[in-house]
Design a protein around this nucleic acid. Structure first.
Lengths: 221, 221
DNA sequence: ACCTGAACACCGTTCAAGT
DNA sequence: ACCTGAACACCGTTCAAGT
């Protein structure tokens, strides 16, 4: 009867699509941290081997770029919604979403210093924001500068996100208990140090956006 | 005659002071890049062994912290000169010096994401800047926030400094030759991309400082 | 044609064994 | 008491050998 119960061979693409590789990579990062992501751990979780992975991903740099662009995709604001916002709010929200998306996924950002994002989601995000800015009167080159600076700002802060957000204050004795003789001013606010990175990020971002408003050609002083 | 020409045994400290370890580490970084710094390469260049290094440095994190603080020391402005400057110039120059010192030493910054600087030079720099800010009328906690944000700003950008500064434009084809159909605005300025990171850094820093001026209690609108 | 165990040249870190 | 070769448990990456 059941002479051929075996599933028919999938003759299409190999059963290891890039999307699944990337999703699994992000799972590993979310569960065990960015440092736990290796070709071995990834192959293991996929039930494959490292050598096979190299048939689908050129090397670790490409893997990280793919992961990064996927996370950027999650962070994306809807394009139409974006264009409805005032340009300064569009910049502020986009930058904040990128930072929080990266911070949210363990220390993914730590993997991609030195990478210039060129994945489809990165390209789209840049183009969208530049559209908003040129529509607001900025020159294209100035718009590019603004977008690049905000991107480096978000990524730079995300890279510095500590692994375990809650327990860091206790782990930095030199900063939490500075010698009041040597460092009186620091000591006077030591109870509050280190300040939450997300708070510093927002503080600096508001300063940046505020400064940009004055540079807008249609700025009314 | 020369019955005892051998140099007298140095009975003092072992001939491997921490300063020499740090200096050699920085030499390796400057010559071969931050990725070339390992306990093996360091031991090799010192004519020692990895196990011996561990008797002088607890682990790689501590090594990086020591290297970082040394570089920070090179970047330090003279304290007296600092106090003579207007507070906004003091902030701007200090931040810029930290960024350029880190960028100048290969990709040292890449090694120290997630590190909260607590070395003596880091502590001194924080204290000095906070003094300048409180003297200018800022509340101590606000001063701490400003210093922390500027520190993360400098470090975040330094981390993203590309390895070989000059040759990167050619290496990012996705950005230098974006599809004009998909990304028309990006394409219109593609000749200028990617913008030099140092330029973006200065652009953003000016925005930050400018924004801070409005927050100064003694600000005249 | 596709897959993979095993290898290569590296890491950070530790420890038994040397002097 | 101080030093160190060798080891351990990892990396990214490649390749000969399997089916």
């Amino acid at each position: 009867m059941d002479s051929d119960p075996a599933p028919r061979r999938q003759r299409g693409r190999p059963p290891l699509p890039q999307k699944k590789i990337i999703d699994t990579a992000i799972q590993i990062i979310d569960r065990d941290g960015a440092d736990a992501l290796s070709f071995r751990s990834l192959a293991n979780r996929l039930g494959s081997s490292t050598a096979t992975l190299y048939r689908h991903v050129a090397n670790k740099t490409e893997l990280i770029n793919l992961v990064f662009d996927q996370i950027l995709g999650e962070a994306q604001l809807d394009r139409i919604e974006l264009q409805r916002l005032p340009w300064d709010e569009a910049c502020r929200r986009t930058t904040a979403r990128v930072f929080h998306a990266l911070s949210g996924h363990g220390r993914t950002a730590a993997l991609l210093a030195e990478v210039v994002p060129t994945g489809p989601n990165a390209m789209a995000a840049r183009e969208d924001l530049m559209n908003v800015l040129t529509a607001a009167g900025f020159e294209p080159l100035q718009a590019a500068r603004i977008v690049a600076t905000l991107g480096h700002y978000a990524l730079g802060f995300a890279i510095q996100t500590p692994t375990i957000a809650g327990t860091d204050a206790a782990k930095v004795p030199g900063l939490s208990q500075p010698d009041p003789t040597d460092y009186p001013v620091t000591a006077s606010v030591a109870d509050h140090l280190p300040l939450p990175l997300a708070e510093e990020f927002a503080f600096g971002l508001d300063l940046l956006i505020d400064g940009l408003r004055k540079q807008c050609p249609r700025h009314d002083p």
